[in-house]
Design a protein around this nucleic acid. Structure first.
Lengths: 225, 225
DNA sequence: CTAAAGTGTTACCGGTCAGTAACACTACTC
DNA sequence: GAGTAGTGTTACTGACCGGTAACACTTTAG
């Protein structure tokens, strides 16, 4: 029949007998996340998703009106997870935007270089959805716009003289890392993202008025020159 | 029948009557280039390609052993065009690697921002070909490795203190621009690529020995502060 | 002129796709 | 206990997919 019934049968177990307590909809969405991310949107059929989730196509269509809507929901779900990760990455350095950016990129590198990584769900999805009216496109464009906005805001808070330029440059860096991840096994260009972001930060953030010394980014980083 | 017979019937015209003189194989490959780039690999079927090329599926399979092989050939063709463009972009500044890089990125920006652009054929293709054994993957990985190598070489020739780091950073920038192009209509983050490359060049290339002062990036870039 | 290569045409194969109809069963709620 | 919502199962539709068989035709090369 299907190949993952047992794998997914561990329910939340509110009562005693922990059988497949998880709602079909959640199981499907969870399975879709894995399959869509790994193999792509068009490569995965609804039947494959349903059976991998331990159910069938009929139950699938009781939860989702169409595959396209599932794709949109998948992207929304990925978005929620993404911002959770983002917020967690910058939280330890609240108040110091420069450190937040550095931490964000360090975190991003280790995550994106991991074995199972296939880059960015949204970037991959938009390649497969050229049609402008697909319900998933709205989610993607919104997500990327939010990403751009956040990087610009952080750049501004970090004291960049041209925060829009810095934010956009950081975005190019990030997106480039996601994309190159698909063509290079390991030790790809993304390896330099950490250094690159620091170089850009140095170039865009003026040293604070040298009335005295060691105001901000002049200590450890300047030692390079 | 088909919709483009007339459009493609302009042959090379070695003789007089310029009917569909172009070989079927070339017509198919040319049509595939347009369709694959615009709509993606999986979204376009061989029948659609054949009929758009003014022929049919049977003639298609006389020229190409399979769709996967057509995809590989499509990518090889794109690669040839890409390096032609690349060489043409840097040719006017032979001998001055820094200018070559600037010209390359300027050219890249105007091209990638154009209306019909859908980013990088290779980047888009690799998203749709997760299977490691697809004949197209070899072409993609080879292309991206070549790209990385060229950027590193140019960085070295430009006098960068760490040419590998600069080259890889430029690659991230470029790839990021290609990818973001798909999510932003116009005025996307790629708009800053020109400025970004110059900032990075300034940061990575030491000012030529001034025999006196100004050790590294203290001239033009520092004037911003 | 003849032969071969290239091409067009129609019909077909087995498989998969997204999406639906109809019916049986279980579990929880009231 | 009855009702209802959620779920499983089987079978199906119509469309499309990549790929092939068989045959007729035209163009080119010798």
């Amino acid at each position: 029949m299907n190949t993952m019934t047992k794998t997914l049968s561990t329910g939340s177990g509110t009562s005693e007998a922990a059988v497949p307590k998880v709602r079909v909809r959640d199981r499907i969405l969870d399975t879709a996340r894995g399959l869509f991310y790994r193999y792509g949107l068009r490569a995965v059929g609804v039947e494959a998703i349903a059976s991998e989730a331990g159910t069938n196509k009929m139950s699938f269509y009781r939860c989702f009106p169409s595959k396209d809507e599932l794709i949109a929901e998948y992207l929304r779900e990925q978005g929620r997870g993404y911002w959770d990760w983002w917020d967690a990455a910058i939280a330890p350095h609240a108040g110091d935007a420069r450190r937040q950016l550095e931490a964000l990129f360090d975190n991003y590198m280790t995550l994106t270089c991991k074995d199972g990584s296939r880059g960015c769900s949204f970037g991959n999805a938009v390649v497969e959805l050229p049609e402008g009216d697909h319900p998933g496109r709205r989610v993607i464009e919104q997500h990327k716009a939010e990403m751009r906005g956040r990087l610009r805001t952080l750049s501004s808070e970090a004291g960049a003289t041209d925060p829009e330029a810095l934010g956009d440059t950081l975005m190019l860096l990030m997106e480039g890392g996601y994309l190159t991840r698909l063509s290079f096994c390991s030790q790809g260009p993304i390896s330099v993202a950490g250094k690159a972001v620091r170089t850009l930060l140095d170039a865009h953030i003026p040293a604070v008025a040298p009335t005295a010394r060691t105001p901000r980014a002049a200590s450890s980083k300047r030692s390079k020159a």
